[in-house]
Nucleic acid binder design. Sequence first.
DNA 1: CCTACCGATCGGTAGG
DNA 2: CCTACCGATCGGTAGG
Lengths: 229, 229
Amino acid sequence: MPVSQPTSIQRPSPVALHRAEVKRPRGRPRKTAEDRDDGNRRAALLQAAAALFRRKGFAATTTRDIAAAAGMQSGSPFYHFKSKDALLFAVMEEGMTSALARQHTTLALSRAANPLAQLRGLVHAHFLVLLGPQSDFIPVMLYESRSLKPAQREKLSALQSQYENLWVPVLKALHASGHLRAPVVLARLLILGALNWSVQWFDPHKKASVDDLSDAAMALFVGGSVASS
Amino acid sequence: MPVSQPTSIQRPSPVALHRAEVKRPRGRPRKTAEDRDDGNRRAALLQAAAALFRRKGFAATTTRDIAAAAGMQSGSPFYHFKSKDALLFAVMEEGMTSALARQHTTLALSRAANPLAQLRGLVHAHFLVLLGPQSDFIPVMLYESRSLKPAQREKLSALQSQYENLWVPVLKALHASGHLRAPVVLARLLILGALNWSVQWFDPHKKASVDDLSDAAMALFVGGSVASS
DNA sequence: CCTACCGATCGGTAGG
DNA sequence: CCTACCGATCGGTAGG
């Protein structure tokens, strides 16, 4: 099974870059096969790290835990990531990028709808990001950001602001129409908090579904069903 | 400046209790001095641990950090607490006991008031517990409980249930009167989540006060001012 | 409560 | 990506 060079997603170190440019024998298509595999292993590490960081926290998770969960030996994660910190940052960045894309789609699909329906769309999609399948990345970002170094935190805060700002026009419209009674800025903070906290108590094996949660949240925040616009 | 004995809030371990009962030489008032000192140092450790656990998390905080913050040498915390785990548990138990007492007082004071005023009282007191002076203990309990051993978590969950159940009658009354539109159980989870999340973003140096937050939360959850009952 | 210390674990690296 | 390893740190303890 062929093995791998780093994909361009991860910035290659000067050394690796140099290697990639210089050495390149003529034989079989080594690079393609290599890249595929590496993306594979890198993605496995990200997924394993996200799951462990979420369950045990960043500081309580060892790089050996992560390596084992991805089926590697203890030193191997450092072939893909410069440090444990870099792994944490990659998990968060991946989570935010994917969540942002999801919410952009949600808003695009409900552009013609009324603000209540738009809020319901944002709420539902946010619950899915937190509680749905492959939902380890964003909870890690929400609950482990104090483990980031300042420079990393700054990079992420740009994405976070983008995400929060998606909610503002919708909330403003609902405030203007009288559906939302609290000031928009505080409302955004309180609403996202109510949703974010669900990762602490939501149990997919119990009766309440993500749809039930979304209905309850809408009833709580804007006092009724989407229909009653 | 007289210093305090441990309040009965902290249950003394059987060993300490035994010692206090048995040994009591006749000379100077040794026991008093010892206990006073011990309560002093123990409380300092609890406070230092709470602040550090809140800021850096349990796993990322070393017992040496805590000792230094309390002005001790590295091995000394283990004279007062059996283990780092025990310190975490003590912080949480102290926080819960104190928060419960506070909310009982709140409810007692507003027993004659209408449910909206009662909710406002609970919300305000909860914000104070999270964000007011000496507010490190409850945030630690909220955000670090996964670091507890199962037996410890079980002991705490009794106190947590007590705390949550204080809200239910008030929410039920508001649901019956039409002020609260969401199902009571989910409403309690979402409301407490919205409040709990405030520890992530509240900045006492900014303009919004705890009173402003309470007003906004009431407006968001029950759509208006307390007066409009 | 301090001094002096131990055993285990951890992030990370060299070299292939 | 593995093997073999290092230096540092950490929770905890003995003995006073």
